[in-house]
Lab assay of single mutants.
Amino acid sequence: MLDDRARMEAAKKEKVEQILAEFQLQEEDLKKVMRRMQKEMDRGLRLETHEEASVKMLPTYVRSTPEGSEVGDFLSLDLGGTNFRVMLVKVGEGEEGQWSVKTKHQMYSIPEDAMTGTAEMLFDYISECISDFLDKHQMKHKKLPLGFTFSFPVRHEDIDKGILLNWTKGFKASGAEGNNVVGLLRDAIKRRGDFEMDVVAMVNDTVATMISCYYEDHQCEVGMIVGTGCNACYMEEMQNVELVEGDEGRMCVNTEWGAFGDSGELDEFLLEYDRLVDESSANPGQQLYEKLIGGKYMGELVRLVLLRLVDENLLFHGEASEQLRTRGAFETRFVSQVESDTGDRKQIYNILSTLGLRPSTTDCDIVRRACESVSTRAAHMCSAGLAGVINRMRESRSEDVMRITVGVDGSVYKLHPSFKERFHASVRRLTPSCEITFIESEEGSGRGAALVSAVACKKACMLGQ
């Protein structure tokens, strides 16, 4: 009897593995994704193909990295998701002549009506938060230079001027797309009239992360975010950046690689679950690469896999709870928690219980395998993109072996128990001629924006502006 049951459990697990095998990517698959990513990057950089390229390769006008001589107080704003952060950054000489960066910050959550109302409502709310922060720190009387981390696709015309191309991540505030974001912020500050600010720089969160990590390690020339969304930036040779005049030196390019796949480059790798996630998203047909990796989508992918296993009578005796059938019910943090389970399955059992399920031991094991399959594919897909960037940098610099540091931020990278190990191992397999160091950014977005502002202020002083 026991043997029969054991055989049935083994057969069930084997069927589960057959279904989950769809998520496995072979090294040849990853090399294919990497080569296609490089081709799209090239198209994004070139003037004649930029418009139709899915990977936009947006110039950021960040050319210099901090040298350690900029000092002063800077205000930093960070808008990239449902939370908005205001930070005071003091850049100065530390002990023994070292450079020191001290920060104080406060988080504000953005109400739904500000995210989806008008641009005026959104930026009025942001300036209200700045006003509140300055009151708390008794700094209303000071006109501070301000660095703005704005983590949406922007076409820069200068370091302090950028046109919002399109909202992502659930934002829909009308009247912002096609307009200068810094102008919208300046107008809102003017409307309030109770404080003055000098907006000197606007950067993407990947750029802010790279600059913040450069402060720790001067070989950091790539910034990457794996959180709600997924994106990367890197220092490109100016001669390859056709959208900006000049051939000397390097400029940081914001790849906006989340949109890779929007022209069909990933079609052969998309599964039924991916198509369902895409169809029910706020932007169907867009940001397809990001939807395979980002935390906004990972939990939902797992939920759809679990429903398939229920329908195949391989999980929960073929019956799903009402909660499990509800879109968004299986949160991405559950994926991390399930994979963090120590082996007694308590954590998995508790999560499934909150979803109205009474799982068996085998159910718990199957749910864990589903989570591992989805998150491992995410790590491997992400590795193909980064390997594409790094191999490109090595080739354009004609280096036999390139040493490089990548600064990384984002909740999936930082909080998932195995993502970074799987990701690092896969990147290294795909970049055999590179020695890569990964560092995690601390308060990256805010500190990085302030350091970019410090560079901009120093330049302005040198130019006598």
Rank of each mutant, 00 (worst) to 15 (best):
T332P: 03
L2H: 06
R308T: 13
R358N: 08
D4R: 11
P66D: 07
N391S: 11
E48D: 06
R43P: 02
M34S: 10
E421R: 11
D78C: 03
G183A: 09
L122A: 01
L165D: 02
Q286W: 06
R369I: 09
G343T: 11
E157V: 06
A449H: 01
D158Q: 03
K296P: 03
R186Q: 00
V310Y: 08
P417A: 12
T118C: 06
L2T: 09
N179S: 07
N313F: 13
L306N: 03
V406D: 06
E331I: 15
R325G: 14
S418G: 09
Q138A: 09
L144G: 04
M381E: 01
C129L: 01
M107P: 14
V62Q: 05
E268S: 12
D187Y: 02
I163Y: 04
F74I: 06
D29T: 10
T209Y: 03
S360D: 13
V408F: 00
E256Y: 00
S100Y: 10
C457V: 08
T255N: 02
S398P: 13
V427C: 08
Y349T: 11
R275P: 00
E236T: 00
E9R: 13
E395P: 09
N83M: 07
Y297Q: 11
D198C: 04
A384Y: 04
E443M: 15
S76E: 03
L25N: 10
E40K: 05
D135W: 09
R186H: 01
R43H: 07
G80Q: 06
E248V: 08
E48A: 11
E67W: 15
H105D: 06
T354Y: 14
E256N: 02
P145T: 14
Y215C: 15
V335N: 14
V367C: 10
V86M: 03
D135E: 07
D365T: 09
D341A: 08
D205I: 00
G183F: 01
L30V: 07
H380T: 13
F152D: 02
Q38A: 12
P153L: 01
R422G: 12
K172I: 03
Q98H: 12
M41F: 10
V241I: 14
A282E: 15
I404R: 06
H380Y: 12
E372H: 13
V71S: 15
S433K: 13
E256M: 02
F260R: 01
F195C: 00
L146C: 01
I159F: 04
D42V: 10
Q98N: 12
M37G: 01
E265F: 00
E27N: 02
M115P: 02
I110L: 12
T149R: 03
A6T: 09
A387Q: 07
E421K: 12
V154Q: 03
I351G: 14
S54A: 07
S441K: 04
A232L: 07
K32M: 10
N350T: 07
E52D: 10
P111L: 05
S100C: 07
H218N: 14
T116Q: 05
M139L: 07
R422T: 15
K296Y: 03
G183R: 05
R155N: 05
K12H: 09
V452A: 15
